[in-house]
């Protein structure tokens, strides 16, 4: 048996497809991206090595305003953590405590998560449409004509208008994770607490939420890194416009690389996104660890 399990040829053959895919499409490209980010390169001619110039330009250039672009992503992360997650938690707790139609609600709330972001984006484009969209039509119907806007075309409203569908789409995802987490808390703990006189929201505060910490950590990490990486819905709705009002790092990266052929500069943005994601994932883990202690 041991001899069979140590068969070197078999190990190589079994490992080969996964390893090849992984190295060729994830491993090597990471290093290439770092290398590109140090080049002044348009993708056609030979690139020239310019050290950290791209990064310096990124944070100093007044026309790019990268700090504001990152700020937009942070704003989305904050809204996500402080609006989307509490809402999801409330839904999860309410459902898990047992209510008429529990399964039905879980199933319904999860539907938007499954649907392609392009479909969701196109749908919200129509919802926001200044002439015929249901938001403006609704406002006109109840006599609030003065509140109608070109939601996505107005620099003042564009950013929040793209955030709403993002938050809307993923509430159900967090809800489901939390709901599954609550359901897996053993009923004997709940019974013990109930005998001790805990009830309703007291129970949630002292029993459910503390025991749910590992799941909450996952949710916060997803919410924050997801916000920092956000691309699809913003690309479909505004592509960062008007006048960069709703620009986020990912849309800026794509338009720099594939719109303006600034390969080196765009790669520097990619590296920043990756760095931020790792940095915050570690930070959040640290935060939850000290919390638990």
């Amino acid at each position: 048996m041991d001899k069979v399990m140590k068969n070197k040829t078999a190990i190589f053959l079994f490992m080969f497809p996964a390893t090849f895919l992984f190295i060729a499409i994830i491993g090597v490209p990471i290093f290439m991206s770092v290398h590109y980010s140090l080049l002044d390169w348009n993708g056609i001619t030979e690139g020239t090595f310019i050290g950290f110039q791209n990064y310096i330009e990124l944070f100093k250039s007044p026309s790019i305003r990268f700090v504001k672009v990152i700020g937009n992503a942070f704003l989305l992360a904050i809204l996500s953590v402080f609006i989307q997650l509490p809402l999801a938690l409330w839904l999860a707790i309410s459902l898990a405590r047992g209510i008429k139609g529990e399964r039905f609600f879980v199933t319904i709330f999860f539907i938007p998560v499954l649907i392609s972001t392009v479909v969701i984006g196109q749908l919200w484009l129509k919802i926001y449409n200044p002439q015929y969209g249901i938001i403006n039509a609704g406002l006109r119907a109840i006599g609030f004509d003065h509140l109608t806007r070109t939601w996505l075309g107005d620099q003042k409203t564009a950013l929040f208008a793209v955030f709403v569908p993002i938050l809307w789409q993923y509430v159900g995802y967090h809800m489901l994770l939390m709901y599954a987490g609550i359901k897996s808390i053993s009923s004997s703990i709940n019974e013990a607490a109930m005998i001790d006189g805990a009830e309703g929201w007291q129970m949630s505060k002292y029993i459910t939420i503390p025991l749910l910490k590992p799941v909450l950590q996952v949710c916060v990490i997803f919410a924050v890194t997801g916000s920092l990486k956000a691309f699809d819905l913003i690309y479909v709705l505004t592509n960062g416009g008007p006048a960069h009002a709703s620009e986020v790092p990912s849309t800026l990266m794509v338009s720099m690389i594939f719109g303006r052929n600034r390969y080196g500069f765009g790669s520097a943005i990619a590296i920043c996104i990756i760095f931020l994601c790792f940095f915050f994932a570690i930070l959040i883990k640290k935060f939850f660890r000290t919390e638990v202690e």
Binding site: F22, I25, I30, K229, V254, G266
Partner: peptide, 24 residues
């Protein structure tokens, strides 16, 4: 080690690869 390296793949955003893979 090999398993751990694969698991690192869970955290890598596709941004890391998009341009190099495009060029390839």
């Amino acid at each position: 080690t090999a398993n751990n390296i694969f698991m690192l793949g869970l955290t890598v955003p596709i941004h890391a690869a998009i341009l190099p893979v495009f060029i390839m």
